[in-house]
């Protein structure tokens, strides 16, 4: 269990974690085989242990498969009505700022019924951490189309694949929230391969570290396989994330910036401040590998979905389950779901 042992710079420097996290209950999960929830929750538990905040952490769970986290994490837990977790977390954090508050939500919960709550929690820059598990489908209710379901992806409620004319286009939550000044840290990760799991761990740890530094709203979007509802084997599901899903939802830091303060705008009215015409502030959007402070080992090539700075829709028809490409950057990582705990050779 040494997948997070390499030294990392800045605030996320932390000791080696090699034992069962205290924040994780010693029970077998009852998630489906190949599900990403188990890995994500383990990472969450590790991060809470490593930062030493388990005793003052309150988790707010949502409705869906994500709610089952209460079985596995040994922290204070509150579950709220569908989609309302960020609002409840707001109340907890405002009433008790000394607590570490996170929400753990799925994509149906956060991106459909809870859109208003997540957008406004980010806009208010609530000092909370959101773990957003995105598997492009409603899992617990049996595989219906989610707001994040890809164009062309089949589900119980779009049997012939999601048709944009009928169902519109998937929502990129992290990019959407990046336009809000209140959101200070947004990163998309996946839990498919050891390298990605390591990066996911660093992202989650960083998000909590930011909360401890009172920086404001942070969200880590975790692309997670759902083999059961995708109708795939676990390894197919992992490959589908790498080859299709992460092209529409590119991995990496979407936004990482210090809190934006508007005090200077109030002191200098827009008429006197030329910068005010351009909103009077700027934030740094980190996209390239050179700006990656967390030192992650691999990064997918420049997102396929982004061409000339504009988003284009990617169809899942690009995905060919039979013809697995053996060359290229994706193939070299070639692991399978559940390999999170495997020791991984370090690239110097």
């Amino acid at each position: 269990m040494d997948w997070c042992t390499e030294g990392t710079p800045s605030l996320v420097t932390a000791p080696v974690v090699t034992r069962h996290p205290r924040a994780l209950e010693s029970v077998a999960t009852h998630y489906c085989p190949g599900c990403g929830h188990g890995i994500t929750q383990r990472l969450l538990a590790n991060a809470l242990d490593e930062l030493g905040v388990r005793e003052r952490t309150v988790g707010v769970a949502a409705i869906g498969c994500s709610v089952l986290i209460y079985n596995y994490l040994d922290v204070d837990f509150q579950e709220l009505p569908h989609g309302r977790a960020p609002a409840g977390a707001t109340g907890i954090k405002r009433a008790r700022p000394d607590l570490v508050v996170f929400t753990y939500q799925g994509d149906g919960d956060l991106a459909a019924i809870g859109t208003a709550e997540i957008v406004h929690a980010a806009a208010r820059s609530e000092n909370i951490t959101v773990i957003f598990v995105n598997n492009c489908v409603y899992g617990m209710t049996g595989g219906q189309m989610a707001p994040t379901t890809l164009v062309g992806q089949r589900s119980e409620t779009c049997r012939e694949g999601r048709d944009p004319k009928l169902h519109g286009y998937p929502v990129r939550v992290a990019e959407m929230l990046a336009t809000l000044d209140g959101a200070v840290y947004l990163e998309r990760v996946s839990v498919t391969h050891p390298e990605n799991v390591k990066a996911a761990y660093r992202a989650i740890r960083k998000a909590f570290a930011y909360q401890l530094e009172d920086r404001g709203f942070s969200l880590v979007e975790v692309l997670s396989p759902c083999p059961t509802n995708w109708g795939m084997t676990p390894s197919e599901a992992v490959r589908w994330i790498d080859e299709v899903v992460s092209r529409y939802y590119p991995l990496g830091v979407i936004k990482d910036c210090a809190p934006v303060h508007f005090a200077h705008l109030l002191e200098h009215p827009p008429a006197e401040s030329p910068g005010a015409k351009l909103h009077g502030f700027h934030y740094e959007t980190v996209a390239g590998p050179e700006a990656d402070e967390s030192g992650r080992l691999t990064r997918p090539q420049q997102p396929f979905g982004r061409r000339g700075g504009r988003w284009t829709a990617i169809s899942s028809k690009d995905f060919q389950p039979e013809s697995r490409p053996e060359s290229g950057s994706q193939a070299e990582s070639g692991g399978a779901a559940g390999s999170a705990g495997d020791p991984t050779p370090e690239d110097p």
Partner: peptide
Amino acid sequence: ASICACIG
């Protein structure tokens, strides 16, 4: 969201 924040 108001009542949920109050509950929290």
